[in-house]
Design a protein around this nucleic acid. Structure first.
Lengths: 124, 124
DNA sequence: CTGGATCCGTTGCGATACTG
DNA sequence: CAGTATCGCAACGGATCCAG
């Protein structure tokens, strides 16, 4: 029954910036993509459809910095760079999968909610 | 063993835009704040430290549109606006809480990972 | 006075081009 | 192949203004 030492709703709490990193569209998609298997940069770019090189690079650096993703460079010609989840990253992917699961399970209900909303507020 | 009809990694999949809405820093914080109890706009603004009026309004409209948050206006003077999670929103808050739980549980490990990263790559 | 809309300066993102 | 550099645009933060 011990209270958590953290409170993400507090702006100063260190967990806030961690949440900021993972509560991000591209970060979550990258984690889900890497959950399946280790991927090279180009493969990751293909798997996470719609992500730009810039955002993919930026997202990967952030995840790497927090120890969620491991970057492995093989000095072939041309160079091969492989990205994979660290054990810490895999523990997070469990939680992210719960979000995905929810999205899949309630997609239809969200569609209905949207239709209902449209009816109630017919365009602003 | 039936495969999911959805794939969030597919840019065209409708679940992608749902994830985009909830895989958002402010959206998650608002959901966590409302998980505790119904809150008025100003109280919500205080509880979710650091959010601007503009982003809070915008976030709430988005969540309301997808049926996750209910908006109740009481025409007092001055007007009272209460926000609460819908049943759908509460089902999502379960999943979001898992993310928060993970953040709290692994905060220390992330700190260590960051320190390790700093050592490996001493400033870009 | 609360909730929110609007305007503007700054930051961040997307698209393209270029390099080791 | 895996990035970095540049630039135009959209999104955000902050301040101000407005309706009830």
């Amino acid at each position: 029954m011990t209270a958590d030492p953290y409170d993400v709703l507090d702006e100063q709490c260190p967990t806030r910036e961690v949440l900021s990193r993972i509560a991000d569209k591209w970060a979550m998609l990258v984690i889900l993509a890497l959950e399946e298997k280790t991927l090279r940069f180009s493969a990751l770019r293909t798997r996470v459809r719609g992500v730009t090189q810039k955002m993919l690079t930026q997202t990967l650096r952030g995840l790497e910095k927090d120890g969620l993703v491991a970057r492995k460079v093989t000095p072939t010609v041309p160079v091969t760079v492989e990205y994979s989840l660290t054990p810490l990253g895999r523990s997070l992917s469990q939680a992210v999968s719960v979000i995905r699961r929810w999205t899949y399970d309630y997609m239809d209900e969200i569609k209905r909610a949207r239709a209902r909303f449209q009816k109630t507020k017919p365009v602003a």
